[in-house]
Design a protein around this nucleic acid. Structure first.
Lengths: 152, 152
DNA sequence: TACCTTATTGCGAGCACTTCGCAATAGCCG
DNA sequence: CGGCTATTGCGAAGTGCTCGCAATAAGGTA
């Protein structure tokens, strides 16, 4: 169904550092290439949410030849390994960030403002979903839309 | 922000029938064209979730010349009028359905199974979101991903 | 009924985001 | 150092949706 993560997000080593992440890559038969190192550097450098294109920009500041498609492929790979995660805040490009800092997202439909919310906010829903449907929610992939305080 | 609904979803006349919907169109200076009539007919014929392409197929069974882009334009218009709503269940095309039957969606990341859930399931979350962030959630646009009972 | 204004349509081109195929390159193992 | 194969750059292709434009047709008016 989901086009990403054809395999399970691997054993959650929860890569806490760039070197941890590269170690994970190695453990899975992957190679440590400079594009991967630079991409991870960019990801670890800031906890922000960035699109593939933005990340490519940062990577290219370091090594101009690294192609956007390489960035996409590396992000896919890192997602399979459980190092990064992508989410959707609306129409438009997906945004990527480190899996170690997952959280929910509220996005205002009017002004676009993004609010990061603790996972605990979804505890009640998770409980009900499990009780009534046996469904285990993962509240990270899609943002919860609505209206922020200012726009209400 | 959202590329759809440049104007607000209009006065909620909550079109309950095809004729109500056409009346709404008329009231807003729109014209009742056969493509609109046929599209609405398809939408009212089944409460299912369908992509623009699927709807175009149904419409074209009736009137083969109606172009996909016309279907998109009509869906946009009907969405602006508050007659239909679209939501995203994962990567891939959006799905459309009548606004009168809005509800939340749980989608299994593994098998793709869709579970329709009552809005009340989100009441707790809505309350917390409002209390802690002043944020008013709208739990319809994006599905809540996770694992269904069978895949857990 | 004929006419006029303007919303709507068919059509193809275009766009945004992402994926793919392929030959060339480069990690990592022995 | 050599060889195996993962990875890369590159351009093309794919998907889902939007747009511009000239032609058409709704629905009001006379």
């Amino acid at each position: 169904m989901s086009r990403r993560s054809p395999t399970q997000p691997a054993d959650q080593a929860e890569a806490a550092t760039l070197e941890d992440a590269l170690e994970l890559v190695r453990q899975h038969g992957g190679r440590v290439t400079s594009s991967r190192r630079i991409l991870l550097h960019a990801l670890f450098a800031s906890q922000g949410h960035r699109t593939a294109e933005e990340l490519a920009g940062e990577v290219q500041a370091e090594a101009p030849d690294i192609h956007l498609s390489t960035v996409y492929r590396n992000l896919d790979e890192l997602e399979r390994l459980g190092v990064v995660v992508h989410s959707h805040f609306g129409h438009g490009p997906a945004t990527y960030h480190l899996a170690s800092s997952v959280h929910g997202h509220f996005v205002c439909e009017e002004c676009g403002r993004l609010t990061e919310v603790p996972d605990s906010m979804f505890d009640g829903l998770a409980k009900q979903a499990r009780a009534r449907f046996g469904f285990t929610i993962d509240p990270h992939h899609f943002a919860m839309l609505g209206r922020c305080a200012d726009c209400t």
